[in-house]
């Protein structure tokens, strides 16, 4: 796995998006060359080869390696002064950036109107550690192409949004240790004969604008046509309205879609590795260390397994949580 990872992560991770299919491959908001809100590729725009962000830094970076936790977790409500956690505590709530249409990870529950899922529970875990109350969480829905920027701008404390940790993003933000391993697949109509994304040459494949999934479609040899939509929910709408032939992104997100549409199926093997990490500002590394300590505790005391069981249990037995790597 590791060996396969290196080349893939190096070149493709940027494209596929760290967010589990949804790497934020859009430029920084303060970059002069490109508009930050760029929904650059309009629907239907074919972008073969638009994915050349192989920056030098990418080569010798382990995107899975995060900052080592600094000792044991402080008691909830007793954050060391001067730290970002103390600031969050003083504010009274943790601001989590996520999406509201990624079923199982962060989607709006139509019954309650609340945004919930695996990613949201990661945020709730952090809120629990800071306040002793998982509900002290403010959810801010952000576009896939705004995930890095919302951290850079300080609009959110942490982004947990099926975001792939990759080296390009590591240059702008810090990532927590990996909390989920995903990989890109493709979703097609139930009666499709395609065996994998290679069989979809010339077909329209949808992905969220600003996601690495979108960029990855452009690198497929059979040259499918990449179609960008604002979110993956919009992709599923386009799929059901016959505007696109397929959707390609992280298998977990596709599973959430297939669960909503019995006439769709997920095909092929994972053709990328998408390790999900939570994005945090480089301005306060103590918070990243804190989050890593929270994740460490969750891996050990079974919280991670329970959360997996709760949201993803339907896909099989709970696997081992991804092991933490530190630099």
């Amino acid at each position: 796995m590791r060996t396969r990872l290196a080349p893939i992560v190096a070149t493709l991770a940027l494209l596929l998006g760290a967010a589990g299919c949804a790497g934020d491959s859009s430029p920084r908001y303060d970059e002069v060359t490109a508009a930050p809100t760029g929904r650059q590729p309009g629907p239907g725009s074919a972008t073969p080869g638009s994915s050349t962000p192989a920056k030098p830094a990418v080569e010798n970076c382990n995107p899975r390696a995060s900052l080592r936790p600094a000792g044991a977790l402080p008691q909830p409500g007793k954050m060391p002064s001067g730290t970002w956690m103390a600031k969050v505590h003083a504010r009274g709530r943790l601001v989590l950036g996520t999406s509201q249409d990624t079923l199982l990870f962060s989607s709006r529950n139509p019954l309650t109107g609340k945004v919930e899922g695996f990613d949201v529970d990661m945020g709730r875990m952090i809120a629990q550690a800071i306040f002793g109350d998982p509900d002290r969480l403010q959810i801010k829905v952000i576009g896939y192409n705004e995930r890095v920027n919302s951290v850079l701008k300080g609009e959110v404390d942490v982004v947990a949004d099926t975001m792939t940790a990759n080296c390009a993003r590591w240059k702008d933000v810090d990532f927590s240790s990996i909390y989920y391993e995903a990989g890109q697949k493709v979703l097609v109509n139930r009666d499709s004969t395609a065996k994998g994304i290679e069989d979809l040459g010339g077909k329209k494949i949808c992905a969220a604008a600003g996601s690495t999934s979108y960029d990855n479609i452009g690198t497929v040899k059979s040259k499918p046509i990449a179609v960008a939509k604002a979110s993956f929910g919009d992709c599923l709408v386009a799929f059901q309205q016959n505007e696109v032939d397929a959707i390609s992104t992280d298998d977990t997100i596709l599973a959430g879609m297939a669960a909503q549409d019995p006439y769709a199926k997920v095909i092929g093997e994972r053709y990328t590795e998408e390790p999900y990490g939570m994005a945090i500002s480089k301005g306060h590394p103590e918070f990243t260390r804190f989050v890593n300590a929270v994740l460490e505790k969750a891996r050990q005391d079974g919280t991670w397994a329970r959360t997996y069981e709760k949201w993803l249990g339907r896909f099989g037995p709970v696997p081992q949580p991804p092991g933490a790597q530190y630099r």
Binding site: D101, L103, N109, P110, S231, G233, D234, V237, Q240, Q260
Partner: peptide
Amino acid sequence: ATARANNRQVLPLGASYLAA
């Protein structure tokens, strides 16, 4: 109408149809 039908089945997709 599609959004409502999805909402009726507790599918978050309803929200995406509503957005469209």
